[in-house]
């Protein structure tokens, strides 16, 4: 039974890694700032959540997993706010998308 749970947790961690790689790739692929930050905020957060869930499953139920949950909750709350603050400062400072003619 423990072997199966370990195996599932490893698969979840690999999926989280794939999401993280896509997040980093997305930051380089898009040419404009707003599309770049959209990808990096969303996909990277999903990657983070998936990896953390995989680690939590792998480590079973104890004090360590409680701390992992705290880190996960913190990141899920703060990352959207941080990316919103960045985008807001960009928009207010007059950064606009250049229309492709």
């Amino acid at each position: 039974m423990a072997q199966i749970v370990e195996w599932i947790a490893n698969i979840i961690i690999v999926i989280g890694l794939i999401f993280m790689t896509l997040g980093v790739f997305g930051v380089y692929r898009f040419k404009d700032f707003f599309s770049r930050i959209l990808v990096s905020a969303k996909v990277d957060t999903v990657g983070f959540i998936t990896i953390m869930l995989g680690l939590m499953m792998k480590h079973g139920f104890d004090f360590f997993t409680g701390k992992l949950l705290l880190v996960l909750a913190l990141y899920v709350i703060t990352n959207p706010i941080a990316t919103h603050a960045i985008t807001r400062s960009a928009h207010i400072s007059g950064y606009r998308i250049k229309k492709e003619r």
Binding site: M52, Y75, A82, T83
Partner: peptide
């Protein structure tokens, strides 16, 4: 602002590495 995205990306990776 692109630099700040790079920094937030980097800091999320650092958190995962620490854990």
């Amino acid at each position: 602002w692109d630099r700040m995205i790079g920094f937030t990306l980097f800091s999320s990776k650092v958190i995962v590495m620490a854990v």
